[in-house]
Every structure is written in structure tokens, then in C-alpha cells.
Design a binder for these strands. Sequence first.
DNA 1: TTAAACAGGACAGAAAAGGTACTATTTGCG
DNA 2: CGCAAATAGTACCTTTTCTGTCCTGTTTAA
Lengths: 156, 156
Amino acid sequence: MLRLSKLTDYAVVVLSRLEQDGAVVGGQVQTAPELALHTGMAEPTVAKVLKILGQAGLVEGVRGARGGYRLARPLAAMPLAEVIVAFDGPIALTACVDGSLSACETEGHCPVRGRWDPVNDAIRHALSGITVADLSASAGCAPMRAAASIMNLMAE
Amino acid sequence: MLRLSKLTDYAVVVLSRLEQDGAVVGGQVQTAPELALHTGMAEPTVAKVLKILGQAGLVEGVRGARGGYRLARPLAAMPLAEVIVAFDGPIALTACVDGSLSACETEGHCPVRGRWDPVNDAIRHALSGITVADLSASAGCAPMRAAASIMNLMAE
DNA sequence: TTAAACAGGACAGAAAAGGTACTATTTGCG
DNA sequence: CGCAAATAGTACCTTTTCTGTCCTGTTTAA
């Protein structure tokens, strides 16, 4: 029904790995190659994820030799919405939202103009209660749960 | 933050136009060219939207000469989620959902596998309280109805 | 001074979405 | 009975976006 970027998923993996290794605010840093090794993702991809996370203020990068990354805050204090915004940007309903407000407005059409905002707000609010820690939730590894939930979702 | 298809937006426009002209369950039908004229959209696009809406059971198509489309139900009884599912499909978190379940599973990585469910549920729940009528809201420009329904939703 | 590691931007390939056109089928009307 | 109108379904092409990778510059400990 809606689509998230793959990088968003990667980001959650990287973030939970960082916390798992104690790379939190005051702790030790962890390098991008190390994280790539532990997560099984390609190193350039991990680097990209970390860069974006750094720009969003979710991780801190320490430059120079013996540098690395560490979490800017514990995952429990990191709303998932911030991660999503960092990678997917704000909700974009293409037309009627970001520019081109004159096309169908001239003839009085388009009775839904601007009405998606409440939907956006509802989704934002729904996400605001979830932190990255809720998604991380340690090791369990239950692959079928996601698929099952989507089936339920379609059935309704 | 998340992205809807343009067709979903078109669909809401078409649906509200149908109800506006009284093309509801028992009423008169309306042809695709007519709808294209009134909404300012290209005719093939309108036809495509109507076809998808028909497959989803949201509109009824009457074939043959003097045919056309009519709403299968009033918009107030049409959850927005159904429209979104018809055009955008279910939530797709790319990896870890549609195939390739073995890649990172072999080494016990990917601690977030299947943990997106709460997010999906939260979004689905947020959308479940909104109908197409809330977005349509006719000509009078009364955006507050949808907002109110969302407030109720948040209160839960 | 050297090497390790982050920071930033740029780029090619792949995938998806958007829009259009064509054909088949159904059905009212002269 | 035949014609015209209108939906139903399928296929295709164009455009945009996403993904993943690479390259160059900057910082800093040893």
C-alpha cells in the first residue's frame, strides 16, 4: 500500500547493530567496514547509510584514523519517523501538493485539493509512537511474521 | 515520507465526481469521456482509473451503448484504504518480504526481520478511520471533517 | 609523514510508474 | 439484422526514480 526505501530497512539494521555493540553516545565507535562485515551488506552501501544517518543527526561520525560511528542517542529515544524522513523524505502526493497548483484549479475541478493533509498527519502520528528500538527488539529472526501481516492487511 | 501513486489521487477525484453527479448505486451512469471532461484529466487516464476501480469493486461498469460507471457504494461507506490498496498495493518493504529470505538469514544477521509489522499495523489503523467522503467533502471546502475523524482516531 | 577513516558529490544500471494505444466484447437503437 | 457506443482487457513505450558503486577531498591518530 505504501512503499519504503530499501535504505530505510538497511538503516534500522545498522542502527541496531551499533547499539548491540555498545556504540552509543559515550562509548566506542565502530567503523563502516566492520559494520558491513557484521550485517552482511556491501561496504559502500553501509557507508552511504551511515552518511545519511549522520546528516540526519542520528549517528555521530568520528573522523580520522581510529574513527568510526556511534549512536547520537539510544534507539529507544529515536523515533522511527526520523529515520524514514531521512531516507524517504516527506510524504509526497505528487500532484496537488508540491507545486503546479494552477493546472486544474483554473476550472474549479479537483475537489480533493489539499485534502490529503489529514491523511499525512494521521500517518505521521501513527509513526510518532514507534521508536527504532521497537523494530530492533534483538535477535528473534521471525521471517514469516511480516508476510503474514501483509496478508491480513490485504484481506481487509 | 511515504509515497502514493498519482492514480490514487485521480481515483479520489473521479469518485467524488461520480457521487456529485448522483451516479450512485441505483442512479444514472456516467461515461468515461464525460468524467474526463469534467475532471480535466486525459480520457485514457480516466478510463484506466475506472477500470482499476471496477476490478476493486468500488465502481460498477455498465457495458454496451448507453453504458457508463456508477459507484458501488456511497463514498461515506468507502474506506480510503481500499482505494490505496487497489492502486498502490500492499506495503512493500522490499527486502525481507518479497523473496530473498535466505540472503542475510544464513548468518543470523538482520535483527529487524519481520519487525516492520507494528509499523504496517499502525498505518493501516490510521487509515481505517478515513473514508473517501472525508477527502472529497464536496465543493464547500470543509477540510475539517477529515481532521476531526483523525482526532477521534488519535484519541484511541 | 603516513595511513586509516569519514564526508561529499557524481554516475551508470535497473526498476517502477505514468501515460497511450490497440483490440475484443457487450448492448442499445434504427 | 447491422451499426454505433461504450466498457474490458492487454500490451507497449517513455519518463522518472531508486539502487548501488566509485572517486576525490578532509580529518586525525600513530
